[in-house]
Write a protein that binds this DNA or RNA. Sequence first.
RNA 1: GCUGGCGUGGCUCAACGGUAGAGCAGCUGAUUUGUAAUCAGCAGGUUGGGGGUUCGAUUCCCUCCGCCAGCUCCA
Length: 581
Amino acid sequence: MAKEKIDFSDEKVREAYRHTTSHILAQAVKRLYPEAQLGIGPAIEDGFYYDFDLSHRFTDQDLMKLQKEIKKIIQANYPIEVFELPRDEAIKYMEDLHEDYKVELINDLPEGETISFYKQGEFVDLCKGPHMESTGKIKAVKLQSVAGAYWRGSEKNKMLQRIYGTSFPTQQELDEYLKKLEEAKKRDHRKIGKEMDLFALFEEGPGFPFFLPRGMILRNELENFWREEHKKRGYDEIKTPLILNEELWHTSGHWDHYQDNMYFTEIDEGDYAVKPMNCPGALLTYKRKMWSYRDMPIKMAELGLVHRHELSGALHGLMRVRSFTQDDGHIFMLPEQTTDEVKKVIELVDYIYKIFGFEYHIELSTMPEKAMGTREEWDKAELDLKAAIEELKLPYIINEGDGAFYGPKLDFHLKDSLGRTWQCGTIQLDFQMPQRFDLTYIGSDGEKHRPVMIHRAIFGSLERFIGILTEHFAGKFPLWLAPTQVKILTVAEAFNEYATDLAEKFSDEGFRVETDLRNEKIGYKIREARNARDSYIIVIGEKEEQSGIIPIKSNKHGDMGEMPVNEFMEKIKEEVRTKAL
RNA sequence: GCUGGCGUGGCUCAACGGUAGAGCAGCUGAUUUGUAAUCAGCAGGUUGGGGGUUCGAUUCCCUCCGCCAGCUCCA
């Protein structure tokens, strides 16, 4: 029999392959734990999962046993056959098997349709397919982990046990994938942040990150860059207080819609709240005086520190914290300016992300359950956002019901080292706050009118953005961001004076330079400088002192040969100026 | 918050019912060195907090806190 090749680059094939693997896992579980009830078991981006309701808790050893059983099922090479039943019979069939979750799923399917099942050996599962033609088609399987997951994704439902796994057409591809995962873990910003001494989290403040001196260098560079770009585009920077009275949060709607995530405090027997968002401060800033239609759009930028009570289990390094600085911006404008202004922000996001070499995807998030305002207002806002993004011809996906409580939004998502995506940039359209705060401007007709408002962030939060940056570059930041740009090492103490003078030269030219004059072997100093991910390493000995020519080692490009000091300085000046990657 | 796992000196880990041990980092001294770890010595821990079982707990149990994975949520 000719061995047919599985085309794993085809997403459909990959999905069928992983989906079939998940059925095999379910079959193995049913063999070892017949009392287990089946949830759902789809293919996901890099593998698959299957949910089970079972009082026995799966352990790592259980996963090994299941893996063995999976092997048996593959070796048996059961043909996978599809058959259909009318809805009533399908329900009865699953009831007889005591598959309560499957019964619930069928009940939710439209009436009048026949229900398809897939059968392999003794195992049958409700499924719309497609699948591989037999279990023997699956070659390399790895069960990776077990975790809890709510039935149908709702915390109101029972928590099931979810087994994650992946599969590939060859053992080699599986091994490569697992190796890639291991490599990715080395880029984890929590690990690199510790190694490079950039930031820290302590038990004394779960979710409240500390920025250390070297991390502050990076952060300040980002902020400087951000300020420059916003000034160019007509934003005025403001700073609003962390704590404002409770009344304000009633007006803004946060008290009704966001209370669970807020911290409260008391001052002189008055009730106050710590801001979870910057917008009310910006709104007060707007309201301090009268505006004319000629002033529009008014763009206020704020690096605003906000505090949000996130669930303890959701905290994750710098990616999800309880206090963070949003690179916020609030744009007040005439209704007819909306699409244009949204487009400008999208272009700014794209411009800035490209500087870091990020790829991203955009989501349009629509009206949530807990929302202010009417359906009509939301429809209008959603249409405005759509118009902007479609005029720019950018691809996007729709994230139903995930908007902010005051308006729909366009979200920009970036990937971390393990491929998990994090929302960073956001553009939110808001018809609600201007009403609630009774914002007005005087139109050309001399009458008062209501402005429209955009809330937007580019980085999203400095913290999350720095986390993503760290993983993206594995700590080897572009020169303009690197905490240590030049590290000068001496071969022996005799050259310390020359090295110190050289360092001063770099420092005078505005570079972040450090020397290592310790009485250590050169190999040891190089090793430390490399581990610290210093951008450029220069070794100074007799030859260098005599010639004025220095050998350059880059953390990104390796050994770069020798060049005169001035030439090297010009080169890296240019590298900083262009923000080269 | 939920499910499961984990918590030993600054870091990475060992010991596992008989009152903790290594490497790295740190400090001191020697070495003055040419491209990823020079040698020696010293110091550092009431084993996350509290409670219980036991003659005895880092080890077993309970509880709280924190961390990790996932769910939920979100910048």
